[in-house]
Structures are given as C-alpha cells and as structure tokens.
Design a binder for these strands. Sequence first.
DNA 1: GGCTATAGTTGTACGCCGTCCAAGAAATCA
DNA 2: TGATTTCTTGGACGGCGTACAACTATAGCC
Lengths: 204, 204
Amino acid sequence: MTSARAGRPRRSSRETIEDAAVELFLEQGYPRTSVDQIAQRAGVSRASFFNYFAAKSDVLWVGVDDSAHRLAEELGRVSADEAVDPGRAMEEAVAAVLAVAADFGPERAPWAVTEAEAMGIGDELGASALPRFAALAAALADHLEKHGGMERTIARSTSAALAAAVATAAVDWARAGSRRGTLAPWVDAALVPLRAGLGSSRSA
Amino acid sequence: MTSARAGRPRRSSRETIEDAAVELFLEQGYPRTSVDQIAQRAGVSRASFFNYFAAKSDVLWVGVDDSAHRLAEELGRVSADEAVDPGRAMEEAVAAVLAVAADFGPERAPWAVTEAEAMGIGDELGASALPRFAALAAALADHLEKHGGMERTIARSTSAALAAAVATAAVDWARAGSRRGTLAPWVDAALVPLRAGLGSSRSA
DNA sequence: GGCTATAGTTGTACGCCGTCCAAGAAATCA
DNA sequence: TGATTTCTTGGACGGCGTACAACTATAGCC
C-alpha cells in the first residue's frame, strides 16, 4: 500500500517488543526486568529497544499517550473561534474527557495501573505517571483559559482537579477486574464531589 | 545536651550538603550537576551524600517533606475518636492544609518550584514530585474516609482535588517572587473553584 | 592507658538506565 | 551497478543508586 518506501524495512515491531516486555514484567516484576532482558526476548538488540521506546517505563503507558494526543486534538477542534464562555468551555472539557474515557474498554487498561502491585511497581510508577498527569492538566487548563476566559490560577486549579479525578477513577477502574466496563462512568462518578463543590459534601 | 552519645560524631551536616548542592544547581543547572560534584564541594565523599539524602532529587524537597509529616500528624491528632461526620472531616482537612501552608513563609519556597526553570529541571521535577503529591493525597483521603465516613472513591477523588489545588497554588506562589508572602492565601484562592463546584464556574 | 561497643566515613565495585555514535545491512531508486 | 535512504547493531560512556567491607573517631568502663 503506502509502504515500499526506500530504506531497510523494520525487522521488528513496537507490539513485539511491548509483548515481550509485559511478559517479563508479569513474570519477574517491573524493577527486576532489565531492558537487556526485554530486548533479548524480543529477539532484538538493546539499542533497538530504544528506537521504539524512549524509556523502559513508556511500555506501561502505550494506550494512554495516544489518548492524550486525541484529547488535545479534540479540545483544539471544538469551538475554534467562538466567544469566550466559562460554562461552555467547562462543559466541553468534561465532555472531551468523558469521550476519551469512553474509548477505554475493559481490555485497554494500561499495565501501569492494572498490574501495579503484580509487577511490583512502586515509585517507578509515580515517576513516570506525573508527566502524563501534567500533560493532561495542561491541555485542559489551556482550553479553559483560552476558550473560557478563566483566570489563570482558577483555570489551572480547576483543570488539576479534573485531571486528578480522571487519575483516581482510572485506578479504581483498573483494579475492578475484567468486568469493569468502560472508564467513562468511573470518571463520571469521580466527578461528583467536584460538580457539587467541596462544601456540599457535608450533606453527603 | 542530649548529645555526647557514643560513636563517631558527624563530620558534616545535612545543611552543608544541601547548600553545596543548591549552589551548584543554580550555577550549572540540576541535570548537569552530578552527585560527585556536590559531594566534592561539600568536602564529603559521594557515599556520605547518600547517607544524608536518599536521592539527588531529595535536596529539592527538603522543607516539603517535613511539612508533609506535620500534616499527617495534625490530621491524626484531630478528632481522634469522634463520630464520623463528612462535613466536619472536610473542614478539618482544609484547615490542616491551610495551617501547614501558613508555615511556608516567603523564604521557605522549595527549590524544586522556584528554580524549576533556572535550574533547568524539566522531567526530573515531575518524577520526584508525584510521590509527594500522592503522599499528601493519601493522607487526606485516609482522613476523609476514616473520620468522614465518605465512600472510598469520593474520598480519594476529593482529596486528589485538594492536593492538586495545593500543588497549583504552590507553583503560582513560588513564581510570585519574594513578595509572595505566605502560601496559605494562595491555597485558599486555588480552592475557590472547588468550594463552589465546577458547575458554578459558568457564572464566574 | 587499654578494650569494647557504637556510630559515622570512605573507597570500591556493581547493575542498570539512557545517550551517543560509528559501522553495517537491507531495501528502493536511478 | 552504484547511490541513497532507513533501520539495526555493538560498543563505549556518564550517571544514579545500592551494597559492603575497611577504617576512624568518639564514649564508657575496667
């Protein structure tokens, strides 16, 4: 099709390496698996691993990073040149988040959270998780500030809370086993205290 | 006083090493400063550096980690054996956070956030920041769940939002320069959208 | 003073991650 | 056939964090 470009064809694929890595992670645990071992099982040199993944921890976040890009696009597309409106921007942000969350079926839970304890990921998880969290929050904040006209601090605080709700929901969802369904309702549930406002949890 | 214990006395101090490290971070940037260099300037061996700090990045968070412990204590002390009450627990959590925030004077801003760009800290910051964030959120969630009787998901989502507000406020505060004053009012400002609820930002 | 227990310091070695680069190998294009 | 492009590979390097054994300096006690 589109192939037959010039140059040497790829001998391996991203998926091959990813599969080998996940196998080893589940067998031995994440920290006790070296990049050498992954490359060896995938039948590839160590250098080639880094041709496909910038870091060992990136394997844990394959699906997430793609979705983050989709979310950014979705936010950029929506209300391209409309008047600023905080309420509208807020709804758009939540809707975009839920739309992306709906794409995460029971199968698509990232290894990083489902197998966090099975793989013995402790601090390593945290170290690689925050860049993703920050990227999500930044995208949301940008939208709220630009299309919602919200003040910078408010926009960032709000979007951080949104991102935190997503992260919380993702952890619960991933731990819920194979009957978890889609991520979307979990995010929706985690949004409850934010919609109501913190003060009103008094009546909960 | 309490000293004169048996054993060899310390030849160096945590502060000495911290000072040397921060000097170098500001001169050359964080990633271009090696632990060897820090130890050398502090007049100590590399092994001794790791006697005082578990990781290079810990130097950036000296004050923060202490305050995190204080917060946990404060939360544990409050309402030790009272009836569960979500509203009350919530107020206690916010109060504890604000109390700790009030202790951060203009001088006490952690290097990690004030000098983030001066030191060229990019991803390294994120990697070392999340464990702190998670610890804060976990302490708050534990309190809300135990003393507030809140459902697990709600408690965690709420506390994550709280922690996110603190983090957002801390960044703004640290960037505000030496006239920033105490962290407390910044946190209070970042809590505004949470108190009101996300939906009500429509009217903002 | 000498002996012992204790606590801090130092050198050394190790495994691993992530980066860099130069050399090679397999394809297309002319 | 040769040139160009693209991917692969090996090797070397610097750096972090861990482990450990050897050493040093103190206090307490006989």
